[in-house]
Simulated scan of single mutants.
Amino acid sequence: MTALSNLLTSLILAIWVVAIAILSVQNATPVSLRFLNFQSIQLPVGLVLAFSAGVGLIGMSLTQPLWGFAGSKSGTSESDNDLENEFFSEDD
């Protein structure tokens, strides 16, 4: 199962890299990004897109372990268990 998930992840990543490469070749027009009063130098659209995708991948890989810590509960209270039992009860 691990080999299949690794293959699927690699395949999806490869498709994204190819798509970014095609977009960068097709869109060589320089653009500059503006945010509030800040403005970047002029860069090709494909380079901006590749940089944004790379920052997004790195950012998600760094924040993903934090979601695991936030989602774990230290313990469940009795009221939570009562609500779950009431919701999943089998009344015929």
Results as ranks from 00 to 15, higher is better:
16 W>S: 09
68 G>E: 08
7 L>P: 01
62 L>M: 15
43 L>F: 06
26 Q>A: 14
78 E>H: 10
8 L>N: 07
53 A>G: 06
70 A>R: 14
88 F>K: 10
49 L>D: 00
55 V>W: 05
17 V>F: 09
69 F>T: 07
80 D>M: 12
61 S>W: 08
1 M>V: 07
76 T>C: 04
65 P>K: 00
11 L>K: 06
56 G>A: 04
75 G>C: 03
92 D>H: 09
35 F>T: 04
18 V>T: 11
6 N>C: 12
80 D>A: 12
52 S>L: 13
73 K>L: 07
23 L>G: 12
82 D>K: 14
66 L>E: 03
59 G>Q: 01
17 V>R: 05
40 S>G: 04
79 S>W: 11
34 R>S: 12
88 F>S: 05
73 K>F: 11
64 Q>M: 13
36 L>I: 12
12 I>N: 12
38 F>D: 02
44 P>Q: 01
48 V>W: 02
32 S>N: 08
73 K>E: 08
92 D>Y: 15
56 G>V: 02
2 T>K: 09
71 G>P: 01
11 L>A: 15
49 L>P: 01
60 M>P: 03
20 I>D: 01
61 S>P: 02
33 L>R: 04
91 D>A: 14
77 S>V: 06
61 S>T: 15
8 L>P: 00
42 Q>C: 06
53 A>I: 11
79 S>T: 15
28 A>N: 07
38 F>W: 14
50 A>V: 03
38 F>R: 05
41 I>P: 02
12 I>S: 13
68 G>S: 14
4 L>P: 02
65 P>F: 00
27 N>R: 12
3 A>T: 09
